[in-house]
């Protein structure tokens, strides 16, 4: 029988001291709680989860990203303020309670979520997640592809669509979008380009490269016609 997520957390902490695993509750009816791993110890924890005889999470089913943008939180705070008032013709300093609205920005992050199952023990799922420090420049997480190869294409997809860089991935390239594409379309703040029709077809430098290709010599006869204006 599968242990509860709390028990798994205790088992990880007993096996890997200082793993720093955090319990993330799921308030919904599914109640699939998850474990938040620290990037620096994630690979060791993943290896333990796979190799431990009792847990034996040998099957990585699903890998995905989640984008949590920076949140602007508006709070109403009661504050004391000293104001000058004229009471009975004399200026006095009086303390007053005033309601102030304050805005603060809660920094967002990118999250990678992994769903683990055990084929050997037929239990699961165990949900583990990792979070990046921010959404702009510190977006590196350790790749779990060396532990479960099932993550290979899915981590590439998360890299492509969310922009999480998986350190240690053997072949981290874009998978669904083309190589020259710049943005990460699954992010919540992604703005669609105006030219939906753009595709990297043969024009500009691609065309030049194609013309320099040995196979293009065959087509050069018709090219000369075109250059000379004969159609």
């Amino acid at each position: 029988m599968l242990k509860t997520v709390e028990e798994i957390k205790a088992a990880i902490e007993a096996a890997i001291p200082g793993a720093g695993v955090e319990f993330v509750p799921n308030p919904g009816p599914a109640a699939e709680h998850s474990l938040l791993l620290r990037p620096e110890s994630a690979v060791a924890v993943a290896k333990f989860l796979r190799d431990d005889a009792e847990l034996a999470f040998d099957y990585l089913s699903n890998v995905t990203g989640v984008d949590w943008p920076d949140k602007e939180i508006v709070e109403k705070v009661k504050a004391m303020r000293i104001t000058t008032k004229t009471v009975d013709g004399v200026e006095q300093q009086v303390e007053e309670t005033v309601e102030e609205t304050r805005k603060r920005i809660e920094p967002g992050c990118l999250e990678a979520v992994y769903h683990l199952y055990s084929v050997a023990k037929k239990h699961g799922p165990l949900v583990i997640r990792m979070r990046t420090e921010n959404r702009t420049d510190r977006v590196t997480l350790p790749s779990l592809t060396p532990i479960w190869r099932g993550a290979e294409f899915q981590e590439r997809e998360v890299f492509d669509l969310y922009g999480i860089v998986f350190a240690g991935h053997p072949d981290l390239r874009r998978i669904l979008m083309w190589e020259e594409f710049k943005d990460h379309p699954m992010r919540k703040d992604f703005v669609e380009p105006d030219d939906y029709e753009y595709e990297p077809t043969a024009h500009d430098h691609v065309l030049k490269r194609a013309q320099a290709h040995p196979a293009a010599v065959v087509a050069s006869g018709s090219q000369r016609w075109r250059d000379e204006g004969i159609r």
Binding site: N26, P27, G28, P29, A30, A31, E32, S61, H115, V127
Partner: peptide, 10 residues
């Protein structure tokens, strides 16, 4: 409108 939470169905 489901309540806040998450689920994985397969």
């Amino acid at each position: 409108r489901p309540k806040p939470g998450e689920a994985y169905g397969r």
